[in-house]
């Protein structure tokens, strides 16, 4: 697929998408009504939240804690439910 504005001329050679993973431009964070908040005093840095994230949008910080990329986080709450030490809470978007 040719670059440039999306006119039909971009597709003359076909519509193969040659930018792997470029759907990451798409924001899914807007679907969210709740977001996860970490209490790092309880966090044991095990990474269960990271493992079970379906997006995946949970990443490890330089200090070894975890955080959610809210650009993508849809607020499913799996991380909070699965956290072994209850270090993650789901809070309403508006509350913060």
């Amino acid at each position: 697929m040719a670059d440039g504005p999306l006119t039909w001329k971009n597709f003359i050679g076909g519509f193969v998408v040659d930018k792997p993973g470029n759907a990451a431009e798409y924001q899914t964070g807007g679907w969210r009504s709740q977001k996860p908040v970490w209490d790092n005093t309880k966090c044991i840095k095990c990474g269960v939240c990271y493992i079970y994230c379906p997006e995946p949008c949970i990443r490890q910080t330089a200090e070894g804690y975890f955080e959610s990329d809210l650009f993508y986080c849809k607020g499913c709450g799996i991380c909070a439910r699965e956290c072994w030490t209850n270090a993650i809470k789901m809070v309403q978007e508006e509350e913060v």
Partner: peptide, 24 residues
């Protein structure tokens, strides 16, 4: 407990996909 550190960090499906919330 620290197994997550052992797994392949490579993500070959990027975030920004349109799967439903909480999709298994």
């Amino acid at each position: 407990i620290y197994a997550p550190r052992l797994i392949n960090p490579e993500e070959n499906i990027a975030p920004g996909h349109r799967a439903c919330i909480g999709c298994g």
